[in-house]
């Protein structure tokens, strides 16, 4: 049975962190199509960026097949990195736009209720759940509070950081005088010099890699162990619940 529960009774105020509530239901439409498409495009872009970025910083053994003019291996590698970076950036702004026009779940990524005591209680509960200290997980329509925090810092903040540092580095190639350099060039002296920005950009990559590992693991685990669907939700958009018991 598929029941659309949007708008949810009580609205945002009642359940600021989108607990599934106590009403009986088995499925909720959470992730609208643009969010889902963005998620997978973003995932792909991050994969490409990490792989190409890793090898830009630490190149493979030399290719000595042809004269340099007729070989552009490293150039293509960097091109792919830049292209993926552009996709990531456009996607990010698209996603930001959707936060305004999409459903309230679409806004979760960009904010969290810092001043809400129940939110932090829920975070603490989730930590206990992951530490095997809680017997049964709770149900959430959107992200659980801990996930929301992780998303905010490792996706939103980290992506903004990577876009800014990435564009600062890219702008160096565009040259002083280019609009991109005027827009992002300030990053270089702020960090110290170009090498510092490279280093920070690489640290950012590793932060995202660490997040990706945790994210995929938790998604799989929750899919199995929690009371709601996880992975399929990002495909279909529907959150299904495995039981009708209240929280």
């Amino acid at each position: 049975m598929n029941v659309h529960s949007d708008p949810e009774p009580g609205g945002d105020l009642a359940t600021p962190f989108h607990k599934a509530g106590t009403h009986k239901q088995t499925s909720v439409y959470v992730y609208e199509a643009p969010v889902r498409i963005w998620h997978w495009i973003n995932a792909f872009a991050i994969l490409v960026l990490c792989v190409t970025g890793y090898f830009i910083g630490r190149p493979l053994p030399s290719f000595t097949g042809a004269e340099a003019t007729y070989q552009f291996f490293f150039g293509y590698l960097r091109f792919v990195h830049f292209a993926a970076g552009m996709v990531l950036t456009v996607g990010f702004f698209g996603r930001l736009y959707w936060a305004f026009v999409g459903n309230h779940h679409a806004r979760q990524l960009f904010t969290f209720p810092f001043w809400s005591r129940p939110f932090w209680t829920e975070v603490w509960f989730e930590i206990r759940w992951y530490l095997f200290m809680a017997k049964e997980p709770r149900k959430y329509e959107g992200h659980n509070p801990l996930a929301q925090l992780a998303m905010f810092f490792f996706i939103t903040v980290a992506t903004v950081f990577m876009i800014i540092t990435g564009f600062a580095l890219y702008a160096e190639g565009q040259g002083q005088g280019h609009w991109m350099y005027r827009a992002f060039g300030w990053v270089i002296p702020l960090a110290g010099n170009s090498l510092d920005v490279h280093m920070l950009h690489r640290m950012g990559m590793w932060a995202i890699v660490v997040f990706v590992i945790v994210h995929i693991y938790v998604a799989v685990r929750e899919d199995i162990m929690s009371r709601q669907s996880i992975i399929s939700t990002m495909v279909s958009g529907h959150r299904t619940f495995k039981d009708d018991r209240p929280d």
Partner: peptide, 27 residues
């Protein structure tokens, strides 16, 4: 060095080493 040492943070390791270590620990 290619990827610079992050002595700025007072750590005697470079970004890749820190990153790999973090990824390894988390993994």
């Amino acid at each position: 060095d290619r990827v610079t040492d992050i002595t700025k943070f007072g750590v005697e390791a470079n970004a890749d080493r820190v990153g790999l270590a973090a990824a390894g620990v988390v993994g």
